[in-house]
Simulated scan of single mutants.
Amino acid sequence: MGIFSRMTDIINSNLNALLDQAEDPRKMIRLIIQEMEDTLVEVRSSSARVLADRKAVARRLEQAKAEVESWEQKATLAISKGREDLARAALQEKHVLEDEVALVAAELAATDEHITQLSHEIGQLQQKLSDARSRQQAMVMRTQTVESRIKVKRQMQREELETTFQRFEQFERRMDNLESQLGAMDMGRDVPPDLAAEIDALQNDERISGELDRLRQELQRRQASRD
């Protein structure tokens, strides 16, 4: 749930409590502002944790990249010593780490996006909190003037909500039917697990063979340049 969705729930809850319990409007507005202040503290704490997590993810990414380079060098050494079996094993380890690098890089990008969003929301919340404080008295007056309108709309919204849920259920049933049709169309099209595994193994072996050829060519170029 976003910050402002939460704030909307807080305000609606407090307004309902105001009507139900005949609370002092000024007291309720103070509670709303307090909720906003508490939310701001909470989000800032969350941001600090996310920033710390980002540093950890960045370190993992650098370490994984370093290990990829290390296995590349080990494969090159094995080729130079005529140990193709060791070179293949080293390249296999390198591929595993390359997959990890891709995953960690994606995690880092998502963390950066989260940090940007948090920063934006904190700025917005700070602005709204400042506005709420400066308009506190006006908000109390507005609360008093809209009490009767809220009471009237409660009944109207209850009827509208019932209609909305009926439409949602209709849409849900329609989606169930479509998913069932899609599932029926896909029946019998699965590739046998053994065949898929064999194809993956062939592709992986071809990839490693290609890298072995590249390493051999690099080694030959180095030896030629030294001669």
Score class of each variant (00 low, 15 high):
L97D: 00
E98A: 05
E98M: 04
E98P: 02
E100W: 00
V101Y: 01
L103N: 07
A105G: 06
A105R: 02
A106N: 10
A109T: 10
A110E: 13
D112M: 01
E113H: 07
H114K: 14
H114T: 08
T116D: 13
S119A: 09
S119G: 15
H120I: 04
E121W: 02
G123Y: 02
Q124Y: 12
Q124W: 09
L125Y: 00
L125K: 00
K128R: 15
K128Y: 06
L129C: 03
S130A: 14
D131C: 10
D131E: 10
A132F: 01
R133V: 06
Q137D: 15
A138R: 09
A138Y: 11
T143I: 11
T145H: 14
V146D: 04
E147F: 08
R149D: 13
R149Y: 06
V152D: 08
K153I: 11
K153S: 08
Q157A: 09
Q157E: 14
R158G: 01
E159W: 09
E160Y: 12
E162L: 15
T163F: 11
T164C: 11
F168T: 04
F168I: 09
E169T: 11
Q170R: 14
F171H: 14
E172T: 11
R174M: 09
R174Q: 14
M175H: 03
N177F: 08
N177S: 13
L178M: 07
L182W: 05
G183W: 05
M185E: 12
M187L: 10
M187H: 15
G188V: 02
G188R: 01
D190W: 03
V191Q: 04
P192G: 07
P192L: 08
P192F: 03
D194Y: 04
D194C: 09
A197Y: 05
A197W: 02
E198M: 10
E198L: 09
I199A: 13
L202K: 15
Q203H: 12
R207V: 05
S209T: 10
S209W: 03
G210I: 04
G210S: 06
E211K: 05
E211N: 01
L212S: 01
D213Q: 15
